[in-house]
């Protein structure tokens, strides 16, 4: 992970400080504070992590130790759209591997690769909790369920065109 010189806005620092009051100890706010920083900067690296730790009043090393445990905070090397294709058993039984192969071919990416234009990163996810609407995938914040090849093509096309794809939501 490279280190940038992004400085968090003062209002984000203030919001993190205010948030710490909702917890028995300020450290309780850490995961939520990471989310706030991620929303502002677009990713979290060592420098951003250090500022979050400072706002909370905890050692940066401890905050980094926590950050490095979790898999879904965005890194600065990630593409604009992170495509998580669920690969766990309930999805696998209904063709998740085919979904992955298809989207891999459409994007021209292998697992954990990012496109040169930094538009897409392709990943395999462990159970997304959408087993009743398998196969499924998540692109950034949004779930796409009951996937078919046609749906996948449409989603990729919409994302490439900068449009927000229809979500095909069935469970929520």
């Amino acid at each position: 992970m490279t280190t940038t010189t992004t400085t968090l806005k003062p209002e984000t620092i203030e919001a993190i400080k205010a948030l710490t009051k909702r917890f028995p100890k300020p450290e309780g706010a850490l995961l939520t504070a990471f989310r706030m920083a991620e929303r502002e900067v677009g990713f979290i690296d060592a420098h951003v992590c250090e500022q979050v730790a400072e706002a909370i009043g905890m050692p940066p090393a401890k905050a980094w130790g926590t950050l490095s445990f979790y898999t879904t905070f965005r890194k600065d090397t990630d593409g604009k759209y992170i495509v998580w294709v669920c690969a766990t058993l309930p999805c696998a039984l209904r063709g998740a591997e085919n979904v992955f192969d298809h989207i891999s071919q459409r994007l021209g990416l292998k697992k954990d690769e990012t496109s040169p234009d930094k538009l897409f990163t392709l990943k395999k996810a462990e159970c997304l909790g959408s087993c009743g609407t398998a196969p499924c995938m998540q692109v950034n914040d949004d779930y796409y369920e009951n996937l078919t090849f046609e749906k996948i093509d449409q989603i990729v096309e919409d994302l490439r065109a900068g449009k927000s794809p229809a979500r095909h939501v069935t469970t929520a």
Partner: peptide, 14 residues
């Protein structure tokens, strides 16, 4: 809720 095969709490919250 992360146990493969489980997707109930999600519906309550959503």
């Amino acid at each position: 809720e992360s146990e493969p095969g489980t997707f109930k709490d999600r519906a309550i919250m959503g």
